[in-house]
Design a protein around this nucleic acid. Structure first.
Lengths: 226, 226
DNA sequence: CGCTATATTGATGGCGATCAACAAATGTGG
DNA sequence: CCACATTTGTTGATCGCCATCAATATAGCG
């Protein structure tokens, strides 16, 4: 049994004092105040197999959670953007690795505190259950994408989804490289790049630099068509 | 707003009276007593988009939950065997279709009752949360299979998993046809059949009839090797 | 038995992976 | 600020796995 340790962190910024800012709380509970941590690009937040003592909320930046096989094959199960929670686990240990995709700030919540709160506050417990159901819903959507969608459909669906999460402006600013998109979509980075080029040649999007994409939302939707 | 109706069912077998049998309860709660229903092979239990008023537990048989695209592509997200719960949803409506793979008996629990119980009984709420986290964990495992595994690995992993769920005897009795296995693994039924033949020729398993498989667990594990 | 549903096996083709070269963006030190 | 190195992204050529189409075999069932 090892001692509970703090995670790797560049800079510790202690949370504000007496009047708790609402954005520091989890599920609106004043007793669940997060501690701010920052991670550099590509830095590991937690690794598969580590003790799952904390739950995280993204404040700034982007995080990927993924699984790897021994031969290096990787599957990214989700990208977490500002406002998103990640790090919930069934057992005592993480079954995923979490890494910062870009320079990232997160809020850290002690898992025991969350569980204590949930066991006393019914409303918080329901909200936590709902969050887990939401993750499950996302995973289920992703399974049909991975199992049954073509490469072009996957890339289009990904961009549409990112656009919606970033405000549905049609201007998507991708935080992650091609390789990460590929590992999220079950493709290679070359196939992702080709799909983007094809979507551009079809007039469904425009690439204003590799990470900046402008979508024609109507034509993009026509590509996925479920 | 439509009236809450009972699901399709062949035979209604009213639950036992005064002393509630433990196998009829959910999470060990005496107030959560299920009602037994039976469905024939290929019969729909609930459809995507329907009101999610019930949660189900398999008593006998097997159930598949799946999503479909408009052009007929299908992804089965899970097979539910005796003891398994299914039908939990985030919102008011089912986002999946559930169908009986074989002649099946389920217990039906009113969702409102479950939520009422969870809001009063902390222990039950935690168990329900844990069940959802378990489903999420399964979905995450399945994503790396769908995104990064070869056909042979998928079929081998599926058989190993089924063997474990059925008691790890090495004798797997498949309840579902090749087509369902294929739609679960993101393959075609021909590819599933070929993978089974190849595994047999490699001595990793023996087919005693299409639905009866005897595994060499050591050699099977060597195929998936994560 | 014969009828039907299910499974296996074969032949062929296409989508996406792999290997490779080049281009563009980013960063670094002089 | 520019020369150079490094990382990231695009595009091309080829290959292989799995899908598709097709034929046959087997199992289940009246």
């Amino acid at each position: 049994m090892r001692h509970e340790t703090l995670p790797n962190a560049r800079h510790l910024q202690p949370a504000g004092l007496i009047p708790v800012a609402p954005e520091l709380m989890l599920c609106g509970c004043p007793e669940l105040v997060g501690t701010s941590f920052s991670y550099g690009r590509e830095e590991e937040i937690f690794g598969e197999g580590e003790e799952a003592d904390f739950v995280y909320r993204v404040v700034k930046g982007a995080v990927r959670t993924c699984k790897m096989l021994s031969d290096g094959r990787r599957q990214i199960d989700a990208f977490h953007l500002p406002g998103d929670l990640f790090g919930f686990e069934m057992g005592a240990r993480h079954r995923m690795t979490a890494e910062a995709v870009a320079d990232t700030t997160v809020l850290l919540f002690r898992r025991r505190q969350i569980e204590d709160t949930a066991s006393r506050n019914v409303d918080a417990a329901c909200r936590l259950w709902d969050l887990t159901l939401r993750s499950l819903g996302h995973a289920q959507e992703h399974m049909i994408l991975l199992g049954r969608r073509t490469a072009l459909e996957r890339v289009a669906a990904f961009l549409i989804h990112m656009d919606q999460r970033l405000g549905a402006t049609g201007h998507v600013d991708l935080a992650m490289p091609r390789r990460d998109i590929a590992d999220y979509l079950g493709l290679t980075l070359e196939t992702v790049s080709r799909a983007l080029s094809q979507l551009q040649s079809e007039g469904a999007l425009r690439l204003d630099g590799a990470r900046k994409v402008t979508l024609d939302r109507k034509r993009m939707s026509a590509v996925v068509e479920d």
